[in-house]
Design a protein around this nucleic acid. Structure first.
Ligand SMILES: [Mn+2]
Ligand SMILES: [Mn+2]
Ligand SMILES: [Zn+2]
Ligand SMILES: [Zn+2]
Lengths: 145, 145
DNA sequence: CATTTTAATGCAATTATGTTGCAAATATAA
DNA sequence: TTATATTTGCAACATAATTGCATTAAAATG
């Protein structure tokens, strides 16, 4: 079985992106976490390995290519998670619900929970739906009890 | 029938807030619009009538008291709308869908569209739901046709 | 109505987040 | 190995938001 780095390199090539250190590092970090990762956290972890501007540009490129998707938490902070397969440059196919824990502040992609269709008033044309649930995640509600 | 300003003054008193010019002005502006109002717009309209910091503090106080609610648009910008009745200091009772138009960028409170209940994975405890639909609003989809 | 009390405002400084232009570096194609 | 096209880093800038503190003003009190 091919290792993670090899997979990431192929992913970059497939999307016409050059195999660079900051890009591989971002993929490394994101893939190693069980929840969406905030921009500030990424910035902190990458430290001086990459300039702040580079990080923003890496994230933007990945988002455009459908490699990651952005989720804003309740404070408006950008969080990023690796996309499920099937997302591409011009369409993200992962309209799942996101869960923002009030306690640990993690954002989980609830890949199995799809957003139900909506009946909107006449005239409105819905393109995308974005649903964020807040409350306590499985970990935190355990601890509280 | 009592006029708007009188109503606003009562609203402030009821919530233990002093009747000040910046507060009345914010209520005036918000109530005169058909969609949620962004912080930058408010700042611009109020001009030098109130310091930027005061505006932030007015909005925060109103939100805490359940007088207005905040909606983040797709860029993470804060937008504010007056709450429906029944919202209070510690509970907002207006979990309706919000619609963010891709064209005019307005955010509409779809008061009549409630967010459907969700089935989440075991362990997760949902407190609040926050659903933003994007697409074209009634006005803009008219114009396009 | 004058005075006291308490809440709210304005200002200055600071932090966080995100963007742009451009020169230098580097990954990859030739 | 060289050429090219992309990517990076740096500097400067823009905007959003927060904090501490002195001053002002609203409302409560007598
Ligand atoms: Mn997700
Ligand atoms: Mn609303
Ligand atoms: Zn949690
Ligand atoms: Zn519109």
């Amino acid at each position: 079985m091919e290792n993670k780095t090899e997979r990431f390199e192929k992913l970059l090539v497939k999307n016409g992106l050059k195999r660079t250190a900051p890009r591989l590092q971002v993929l490394e970090i994101l893939s190693g976490r069980d929840s969406a990762t905030s921009q500030p956290y990424l910035e902190q972890v990458m430290g001086k390995d990459a300039d702040r501007v580079t990080l923003y540009r890496v994230l933007q490129a990945f988002e455009e290519k459908g490699i990651i998707h952005k989720v804003l938490d309740q404070q408006g902070t950008a969080n990023y998670a690796i996309c499920s397969d099937g997302c591409s440059a011009h369409e993200h196919h992962d309209e799942h619900v996101h869960f923002n824990c009030d306690n640990c502040h993690k954002i989980y992609c609830l890949d199995t929970v799809k957003i139900p269709a909506l009946k909107v008033p006449a005239g409105f044309k819905v393109e995308h739906l974005n649903l964020i649930a807040t409350g306590l995640c499985a970990n935190c509600s355990d601890k509280v009890n």
